[in-house]
Design a protein around this nucleic acid. Structure first.
Lengths: 242, 242
DNA sequence: ATCATTATTATGTCTAGACATGAGAGGGCA
DNA sequence: TGCCCTCTCATGTCTAGACATAATAATGAT
């Protein structure tokens, strides 16, 4: 029996925390000791084995379950997922932050701003009445004076009346909304489209060229707030980890 | 003072759980009582106010912090985020499940399978030596006999030697990998590209037509496992909520 | 005035023990 | 055999108390 060095993979620190438990479990899974579908020991057993309280093991396993690595069921126990949920958390950044984080200078320009009735294709998505009024905005975000993203946005005036009084010449609607609307439910849809003419113009693309679009619909307490279609410059890729 | 009905928004149940605390906090944020940037009471105060233990409040606030709604710092306290992290968890499903969940019949077809040296553009991404061998696979996933996704995949043989002996005629490489490789770190990149000719052929697109692509790189313990480029059929959108 | 040190404070985590809950296992009965 | 009821057990959650830690505020020395 060897005495493991302090930083050896299986060395446990004086005080065993939930991160140590997670690591220990992950090591066993990665090492093939607990293969896909394997049933882990119960929380009580694991806690004794690792030298900590059951609550600590519980927190570790709960997090591993949220991360899609194991599957937990009462009475049935904890199993390594056969088909790990390949999930990733995608953070949709504010354009300004994304551009400035990339070391470029951010610039914003408003193209169009008008109030009118909601187009029918959008009424369906948002569940609005036929005569609902929306604020329709089109603007561009530049990185070092190169067009980075075209934003087409519709804001439901009934839900956010204050929006009607903002002119959005110096600040983008997204930043204004984020600072104004307290919190909201979001649905995002990503896809590829042939660039419509006005988008192609602004982004310097050939009409019909492939453009990456993100559509974001926002609700506040079941009230539709806004719909935005973001079209990104050529070659843009959205990345995420874990 | 009125006696609130049992299901009124501020009615608290006999036993106050962390979900009740989350709800109570969210109600105050949405109701504008705690606007963006506001400092919440400390955990001890909140616990007394709501009638539960501090650990319960802690769990609630910790989750709200993970969800990007509040910001917590030691000594400084808990604040409502001024710019809520617009994050969403994106689950990249197994194609088969995605197709079958959509009520369509799944079919798989292998197009190409060969072992060779790793192309240089991929060597860079994976950090491989010049003479590294990879298994190069191209296949299609059909939904109701319509092409749904073209998968181009490279598997690093040094990391997963067993892959070299699988023929992948009846099972897709993704499903095989998921059932074989215990767990892994993933990086996903989403974008829009003009369809290269061989992809356009398989998906029934015009060459150069916009195609949505997901690129996924997978590691196991810092060892590169596989790189996959998934090209989706026309009009496909990837959606996520919250 | 400036810098280093100490005190304070809110969050972060752990523990031991308790009760709640959901679901599988087993038994009894028709 | 097939159905329903109860039993049992692993996880889910809560509590009260304790110590750990990071970051700010206050203090003291130069």
């Amino acid at each position: 029996m060897t005495i493991p060095a302090e930083d050896a993979p299986d060395a446990l620190p004086a005080r065993v925390g939930y991160l140590d438990v997670k690591r220990a479990v992950m090591d066993r899974i990665r090492g093939g000791i607990w293969g896909p579908g394997a049933l882990l020991p119960g929380e009580v057993t694991l806690a004794e084995e690792l030298g900590c309280a059951r609550a600590t093991v519980n927190r570790a396993l709960t997090e591993l379950s949220e991360e899609g690595i194991v599957d937990r069921k009462r009475r049935a126990g904890t199993r390594v997922r056969t088909a790990p949920r390949r999930l990733a958390r995608l953070e949709i950044p504010l354009v300004r932050e994304e551009i400035e984080d990339g070391g470029a200078a951010y610039r914003y320009a408003l193209i169009r701003r008008e109030i009118g009735t909601c187009p029918s294709w959008l009424r369906g998505r948002l569940g609005l009445a036929a005569n609902a009024k929306v604020l329709d905005i089109e603007c561009i975000h530049y990185a070092d004076d190169q067009p980075f993203q075209v934003e087409e946005r519709w804001i439901v005036i009934d839900t956010i009346p204050a929006a009607a009084t903002v002119d959005f010449t110096s600040e983008g609607p997204n930043e204004w909304l984020v600072a104004t609307v307290p919190f909201s439910d979001i649905r995002v849809s990503l896809g590829a489209e042939p660039a419509p003419e006005h988008v192609a113009d602004h982004l310097g693309l050939a009409p019909g060229e492939a453009v990456f679009t993100a559509e974001r619909t926002t609700w506040l307490e079941d009230q539709p707030v806004t719909f935005a279609r973001l079209s990104f410059r050529r070659g843009y890729r959205m990345t995420m980890e874990s």
